[in-house]
Design a protein around this nucleic acid. Structure first.
Lengths: 211, 211
DNA sequence: AGTAGTTTGTCAATAATATAACAATAAAAA
DNA sequence: TTTTTATTGTTATATTATTGACAAACTACT
């Protein structure tokens, strides 16, 4: 049964992983795959895989399994990898520059069109062929170019103000690397908090608690 | 009731967030806090907060609440922020360098002692005052310095080999930024996969599905 | 000291998520 | 063509996580 309403967060979190594995299968020339075989390779149960995929449509066929190419395309469509969402990045420090350079924005449905920093000294410097602009030009830039997503690589002190400046300018999504927790009480705004420090602390916890 | 056995992953994931909020409360001079007040600030239910904290010990007091300073210290201890776990970083590209420079390893219980890359041209370059070494020196370096954690900022193609070289050298934890999924079938090894691309794709999904 | 008001720790109830089971159906083999 | 085998979609069950409820216990006030 198709229809992507009310899909739980747990399912959505697994989608990129399916996409990644299917991409690899495709690359290695595998044409069809069963939920059982996928289960072995990915470490999810076959039951879960079938149930996950069925949230979006009956992509498989009894007695055959799933067509790798088709399933890859379908999940890509669900994840919107063919979109071309305009994005800006705020904060061109070490992390900001690395994210700008390192991420394959285009392959994930995004188009990075502007980079901003409060440090005037950085202005004009090119990152991924995009000039860093002083933050004071952000307002006009957004008005003129209508980006939809902002990548935040800024100190947490500045986060709240930047967010509340950007939302009225039409930003609908934040990819947040700052330590600030973006409350999800802004209507119609999507947020992905990355919180690298949290991840590092969890690793610390796990190492301390190895059997 | 104390004892940190069988604490669920869901709880552990929230610990760094508690730690972060308590740090802010401490900074702003707040001495005590109730689960109800924390609930309002963090967006978890008071019941969940009390239950989470009780996995590790009865840190609160009826009629009073929790002492901010004490709770901060306790959670820090649980997360091991006062440890000094020796870590190496493999892959000094954009992302690797940024992670090395940007992260407060010491504040999270780690001590970054070595950086490696397969690119000979980078050898000798200083990042955070640590010289980049050629990957060929990794074996001896590990034997001599016994790092416990490896931060992987390498392409997925190289991941499996590096991991299987490092485990016999005594690496007990991986902070993995590569696209490779580290299977958790290595006994006594802790893994934190970051998967930035997955996070970006989830943002894409969410933007496409805003009401 | 006694009492009223808080707030925890914990148990019970509910909700969410994952797994197992299986009939329906298609592919492959006989 | 018929039978066997494979594998899905889907319902039922089990497990895990979250929320609600409340007695016990402490604080703070009178």
């Amino acid at each position: 049964m198709a229809g992507n309403t009310n899909v739980s967060v747990s399912v959505i979190k697994r989608l990129p992983r399916y996409y990644r594995f299917l991409g690899e299968l495709k690359k290695s020339g595998i044409v069809r795959i069963s939920s059982g075989e996928l289960s072995k390779r990915m470490g999810f149960t076959a039951s879960q895989i079938r149930q996950d995929l069925n949230c979006f449509g009956g992509f498989g066929q009894q007695g055959y399994g799933y067509n790798v190419e088709q399933l890859y395309r379908e999940i890509g469509k669900i994840l919107g990898v063919d979109n071309n969402i305009k994005a800006i990045l705020i904060g061109a420090g070490n992390l900001g520059k690395a994210i700008a350079t390192h991420m394959s924005f285009e392959q994930r449905g995004f188009n990075l069109i502007g980079i901003f920093d409060k440090n005037e000294a950085l202005a004009g410097q090119l990152v991924r062929n995009i000039p860093i602009r002083h933050i004071s030009g952000m307002y006009n830039f957004c008005r003129d170019n209508s980006p939809v997503v902002a990548v935040l690589c800024i100190p947490s002190e500045n986060a709240k103000d930047i967010i509340e400046e950007l939302i009225p300018l039409g930003i609908k999504g934040f990819w947040n690397f700052s330590h600030y927790d973006i409350a999800n009480n802004y209507p119609d705004v999507a947020v992905e908090n990355v919180h690298l420090s949290d991840s590092l602390m969890m690793l610390s916890y796990r190492i301390n608690n190895l059997k």
